[in-house]
Design a protein around this nucleic acid. Structure first.
Length: 353
DNA sequence: AACCCGGGGCC
DNA sequence: GGCCCAGGGTT
């Protein structure tokens, strides 16, 4: 038995021996449900996405329900999960499939990949799970498992590396059971061949794993690029007005696009005299307004994969009856809007929601 | 090819 | 504090 066939057969046997992780979308043949689960699980761990999946299905039992929803409602359901373009693209594609395909999801990967929010991985996942199309998924799990077992010392974040891993994966996939194979290798990567402290003792492939033999487990897979973490600084104003709390929607091509926030102003940095910075912003943005300062909050940090966000929340009470700005929304029910996590945490700390 | 987009958990 | 996660879109 050659090395590739051995790998595939051992993996399928491991998967058959009740090593499957239990998830509601496993074995699902409804393309809508499979698609929904795959979008939610992009760059997201199963434990984090599960509750969102269940809530989405409850709210939008089928594609048409989702297509007919308002984008704000979709984003509200997505609140806290991150990568919000996934939610916007999810809604866009629901409408597109409803309009162009009569509500029936296309099944082939070449059609699927043309839809917004569906890339190589997701097209392979949906078409193999729903239609048994023999196309291999290549996600973080697959790259790690292949890099180690076959001792692939090519960085995967390069064009050459991507091509190599894709071709290798498509060479390994079981042609009769591509769905089971794709499930198996991802489950295997997530539970046995983990990034840190892999469970080699329980690994059915340990004896023939080249990285294990050469003590390269902790070195593989290779990656060339390193993410630069930039810092961003904001002052956010929680303003009580006679019309309600002032909000603004983030419309620009930037982080948290489509979500709502308290009126916020970005700074190059915070200085020692924070109150002075706040007063300068108030004078600049609301020259005719008078505020009562209720509370100058402590600086809050939110760490993201590629950003560190620092926000100072300022609680103010407007002393005038006029609205602050036409561009703001005024509400007494914050729970209706989708906010970035850092705002949710602030509202919770104040006991507002 | 480089850069952008969140949040959580693990070490 | 760094790394990774059932990645994809834009430039």
């Amino acid at each position: 038995m050659n090395r590739e066939l051995h790998f595939t057969q051992k993996l399928l046997a491991w998967h058959r021996n009740d090593n499957k992780r239990i998830m509601p979308w496993k074995g699902e043949k409804n393309a809508y449900k499979v698609w929904l689960s795959e979008i939610i699980l992009q760059q997201t761990k199963v434990e984090q996405g599960l509750a969102y999946y269940l809530r989405f299905l409850e709210t939008f039992p089928n594609l048409r329900d989702l297509a007919e929803a308002e984008e704000d409602e979709v984003l509200r359901l997505w609140q806290g999960l991150g990568y919000y373009s996934r939610a916007r693209n999810l809604h866009f594609t629901a409408k597109e499939v409803q309009a162009k395909y009569g509500g029936i999801f296309p099944k082939s990967s070449t059609e699927l990949i043309q839809l917004k929010g569906i890339g190589e991985y997701t097209a392979a996942a949906i078409s193999s799970f729903v239609n048994k199309e023999p196309i291999a998924v290549v996600d973080g799990n697959v790259i790690r498992v292949l890099a180690r077992y076959f001792r692939i010392q090519l960085p995967f974040d390069s064009a050459e590396g991507k091509n190599f891993f894709r071709e290798k994966a498509n060479h390994l996939i079981d042609q009769q059971n591509p769905d089971l194979y794709n499930q198996a290798i991802m489950d295997f990567g997530a539970t046995i061949c983990k990034p840190k402290n892999p469970d080699c003792a329980a690994c059915p492939l340990m004896d023939s794993c080249l990285a294990k033999q050469d003590n390269l487990i902790s070195e593989l897979p290779l990656k060339t690029k390193k993410v630069a973490i930039k810092k961003r600084y904001f002052i956010a104003l929680y303003i009580e007005t006679s019309h309600g709390i002032a909000l603004q929607k983030r419309e620009e091509e930037d982080i948290w696009k489509g979500l709502y926030q308290l009126p916020s102003f970005e700074l190059k940095a915070f200085t020692k005299n924070l109150e002075l910075q706040v007063n300068e912003i108030l004078k600049r943005e609301f020259p005719a307004e008078h505020f009562k300062l209720i509370e100058l909050g402590k600086m809050q940090k939110q760490k993201l994969s590629h950003r560190e966000i620092q926000i100072v929340f300022v609680h103010l009470k407007s002393q005038n009856e006029q609205i602050l700005s036409d561009s703001y929304i005024y509400t007494r029910n914050l729970a209706k809007f989708a906010f970035p996590k850092v705002f949710i945490l602030y509202f919770q700390s104040k006991g507002i929601i």
